[in-house]
Amino acid sequence: MQILDKQGGSFRLMATFKKVMQWKAGEIWATDEELAARSGRCTDRTISRDVATYRRHGLIMVEKGWRKVSGKFLRSRTIRLAVPAVIPPYIVLSERQDHTDTRGLSGEAIHTDTRGPNHTDTRGRITIDTIEEGAQPQ
C-alpha cells in the first residue's frame, strides 16, 4: 500500500482482493469485468490499468493461460499477491510482533490450552485465514 501511495496508484483493486481471493489456493481468478463490478462499478479498462500498475510495481504476479469451457478454449488469468524483489528505501516495515501467547502465565511448567472449538489458535491478531476457519473478529 505504501508503494501504491507513493506512486499515485489506486487502492480500489487492493480493496477488492479480499472479496475475490480464492484463499485456499492463494489466487484470484476473477475477470476484469468481475473485478470492476466489485470495485465500485468502474470500467474493465480501469481494472486492466490497475492490474498492469500492480504488476509493474511487483505487488502481484500474473499468469495467463487457457481453460476449456463447453468445448471452447477461453483465455484465463491467475493473479497471485507478491512482494517486490527489491523493497524501495521509502518503505517502512514494522518491527512490532503481534503474537501474544495466551496459554497461561509466563514461566508456567504447563501451558493451559485456551484454543476454542476446532482448536482455533488465539495467539495473535484475527486474520482472514482465521476468519475463514471460523474465528470471530473482536
Rank of each mutant, 00 (worst) to 15 (best):
Q2V: 05
I3Y: 04
I3L: 05
K6V: 13
Q7M: 08
G8W: 02
G8N: 07
S10C: 13
S10E: 14
F11H: 15
R12E: 12
L13A: 02
T16L: 03
T16K: 01
F17Y: 11
K18R: 14
K19G: 03
K19R: 11
V20G: 01
M21Y: 08
Q22H: 15
W23K: 14
W23G: 06
W23M: 10
W23L: 13
A25E: 14
G26T: 04
E27R: 10
E27A: 13
I28S: 03
A30G: 02
R38D: 14
S39A: 15
G40P: 03
R41P: 00
R45G: 00
T46M: 05
S48K: 11
A52E: 11
T53L: 03
Y54S: 07
R55N: 13
R55I: 01
R56N: 10
R56G: 01
V62Q: 01
K64W: 05
W66Y: 00
R67L: 11
R67S: 11
V69H: 09
V69Y: 09
G71W: 01
F73W: 15
R75Q: 12
R80Y: 07
A85V: 14
V86Q: 13
P89C: 11
Y90E: 01
I91H: 08
V92L: 15
L93Y: 04
S94T: 14
D98R: 10
T102I: 08
L105D: 06
S106C: 07
E108S: 15
E108F: 08
I110T: 13
H111A: 12
D113P: 00
T114Y: 12
G116A: 04
G116F: 00
P117Y: 09
H119E: 10
T122R: 07
R123G: 07
R123I: 09
T127E: 09
I128K: 14
D129T: 12
T130F: 02
T130D: 02
I131D: 04
I131Q: 14
E133Q: 15
Q138T: 14
